[in-house]
């Protein structure tokens, strides 16, 4: 066996090994950065508002009821979602109502559920937890107006 063949095999093998590693990285590259370029940040236009028509429930007490959700900090700061009668889900998954691209958020992180005119925040088993003001949310908790709910580096509050 000529020496040159052995040398080529020796280095060729090492190079091929590294090419394999980089191919693997290439295959998962899209996945590695999937969080950062998740296509749409907000799902708000998908008909969250009073899509059910003019049938706005009368049992909501005027004046004290939350009408909108305002994101106060994080990448989405300034986003407003008009609250209707449907629950609002928050998380990284595309099908959440409020899609937040936050490394500290789970795909389905928390949800806000209206019950008799009062909104409740509920953690959906997220990894990093949901905080209402400074307390961790572990069970459905009523959300007063203007109290920040924090998920990762995003925080938002309900406003009349």
């Amino acid at each position: 066996m000529p020496e040159i063949v052995l040398t080529v095999a020796r280095y060729g093998f090492l190079v091929l090994l590294w090419i394999f590693v980089f191919t693997v990285v290439g295959v998962i590259r899209r996945d590695l950065f999937a969080g950062a370029r998740s296509s749409r940040l907000v799902a708000a236009p998908r008909g969250i508002g009073p899509v059910t028509g003019g049938a706005r429930p009368a049992k909501v007490k005027k004046g004290r009821a939350a009408r909108q959700l305002v994101v106060t900090a994080g990448a989405l700061a300034g986003t407003r979602i008009t609250l209707g009668e449907t629950p609002i889900t928050i998380g990284r998954a595309e099908d959440c109502t409020l899609v937040i691209t936050d490394d500290y958020s789970s795909s389905r992180h928390a949800k806000l559920v209206p019950r008799d005119g009062q909104w409740y925040v509920e953690d959906m088993g997220s990894t990093n937890g949901t905080y209402l003001d400074r307390a961790k949310v572990s069970a459905p908790t009523p959300v007063p107006l203007g109290v920040p709910i924090r998920i990762g580096r995003t925080s938002f509050e309900l406003r009349p």
Binding site: G47, I48, T89, D95, M124
Partner: peptide, 22 residues
Amino acid sequence: PSAGGPVKLQELPTEMLKAGTT
């Protein structure tokens, strides 16, 4: 977007995995 929105939102709360944990 207009047709899919409300239907989807109503489906959402029936999230399958979380119920047990909660």
